[in-house]
Design a protein around this nucleic acid. Structure first.
Lengths: 300, 300
DNA sequence: TTCCTTGATAGCTTCGCTCTATAAAGCCTA
DNA sequence: TAGGCTTTATAGAGCGAAGCTATCAAGGAA
């Protein structure tokens, strides 16, 4: 079983296109085409539906997909382990983080770099579900996401901080009460994240427990967009306190804590718990365990 | 990364001998020798210590060993998954069982054969620790062992039955009381398993809770040996009720239940919980869940 | 010393992956 | 409906890697 051929298969599945997949693998299109053919011959099954065009995976192809991913992940981990056996970690660490946790990724990434100078780090903003999926598909080495709400399966985690929500408004904009009651929120002109995003779902769930529902006038998919809206003065928003820490020096913004929501939502590092654990995952967990976040993050 | 070369590496580690490892891989000795050399070149590390003789793994070799195993396991699982995608399971199912659970393996194995006619099954008697180690090393597909006492790590399990101990003696041999008290055991001439075996450790632990200790006159490593000793009439022994069921038709044997030890020790099927789960492991778990053991096994 | 065991080397063959070039089959547009 | 574009498969050559047999070199044992 050649790992190379399986990589072709995975690339083709990702790209849905022979020529692009070939480019991604740095081989010519006929090479990839032939590679898929030999893989199919070796396994004795058709994996790709194709009649003059890529037509998706056959059921057999779908069935072997998780194992194909595991195979190339194991091959990569083997190489990593060999490189790591002596000397420092090298290569690329692929991190995924939910938008709400982005301010904390700075601490984590710099701590990793300080500890392992040979490392390159790639950070991507993803939804919690994408993080979970890509971890399972070995396309991500570690994730930074919520640990308790809709907890990811098959993952090991290290909690980093507890997130709490803040109300934010422009200093000369919508006036906000000093002490906020839950009921106040429903009457404020709000802009919030889309309902598809987990931070929003958590907020909605907390309010639903109290029989309340938010009707935001605007929804967006990033906190930057929300802050831009808030800055105009007509709306206020609810953001994680981790982001509020970034606003500290801004004159135009005013923040007020929301009423206590109990523990807050724990945010932490997760890695896939497939055994054995890769050297990158081990390193991230070790660093996360020792990580001291700056004030502004509520430690757990 | 060639799976073949990694298989050479693992075979060499198992055999500790180039020529034997080559034979196990069905290649010539120079081929395996060259294969190891290319693997070392590709990984950029010496993996094997050798000066005119095999001298064990280098630290780097030890470090990559788990990932090497995972790589070939993933390759095998990929092939299995492809074969299984349509049609029945094929290939060899490698089962390990503690001696005490051997009578139950008959049910499990026949149920697997009935459900998946294409399957070959290989059963080996192992200690619970060996089962755990070989599951982790992907050298075993499933195990039959104790679930609660010294529970194996990184394993998914399906309980099958609760084991209870029986006192056994020859009909014309050592007289045994009809109702047995714990204290009686200490005064009987006993033959038991070695202390290294888990069944014995469980028994010792149960007695230790009551301040008692057994002083067997003979220890052995198999129940057959114990029964042979018991048959001579000078000794009696303590065996799992699963084995007592096998004695049912024997005229020379007499059995008596031990006083209630509470729940008994749960025995069940375990598989490695590395994600994704291989088709063989899935099948074993599914069959185990539906398995109806014959009377004589105390269901949980 | 002599023999045996054990692993490495040499030389050759074969197999299979890779490439470029090109064909075939749909699809879109004119 | 013809022409051009896109997309995948095929052909044939080149080359490298992995396999084999035969043989060598170095220790250890008799």
């Amino acid at each position: 079983m050649q790992t190379r051929l399986v990589e072709y298969f995975l690339a083709l599945e990702r790209e849905g296109h022979f020529a692009r997949a070939a480019a991604q693998c740095h081989v010519s299109q006929p090479t990839l085409s032939a590679g898929i053919a030999t893989l199919e011959a070796q396994l004795g099954k058709r994996l790709i539906r194709r009649d003059r065009k890529y037509g998706g995976l056959t059921p057999e192809g779908e069935a072997i997909l998780p194992w194909a991913r595991q195979l190339v992940a194991a091959a990569e981990a083997l190489g990593q382990a060999a490189e790591t056996a002596r000397g420092p970690l090298k290569g690329e660490l692929r991190l995924g983080a939910i938008p709400a946790a982005m301010p904390a990724i700075g601490c984590l990434a710099t701590a990793m770099l300080a500890r392992y100078p040979g490392l390159n780090i790639s950070v991507r903003a993803l939804t919690s579900r994408q993080i979970e999926r890509e971890l399972a598909a070995f396309e991500l080495d570690a994730g930074l996401t919520y640990l308790d709400f809709e907890p990811p399966a098959h993952a090991l985690s290290v909690p980093l901080y507890a997130e709490r929500a803040m109300l934010v408004s422009a200093a000369d904009g919508v006036p906000i009460p000093v002490v906020i009651d839950w009921a106040d929120l429903a009457s404020l002109p709000l802009c919030l994240l889309h309902q598809g995003m987990q931070n929003r779902r958590i907020l909605d769930a907390r309010l639903a427990e109290r029989g309340l529902a938010l009707r935001p006038l605007v929804t967006a998919d990033s906190y930057v967009a929300l802050l831009g809206l808030v800055q105009q003065g007509r709306l206020c928003s609810i953001i994680p306190d981790s982001h509020a820490a970034l606003l500290d020096g801004l004159r135009w913004a005013r923040t007020a804590p929301l009423p206590d929501m109990g523990e807050g939502s724990r945010v932490g590092v997760i890695v896939s718990d497939s055994a054995p654990m890769g050297p990158l995952a081990q390193a991230v967990l070790a660093v996360a365990r020792e990580l001291r976040l700056p004030p502004g993050f509520k430690t757990i």
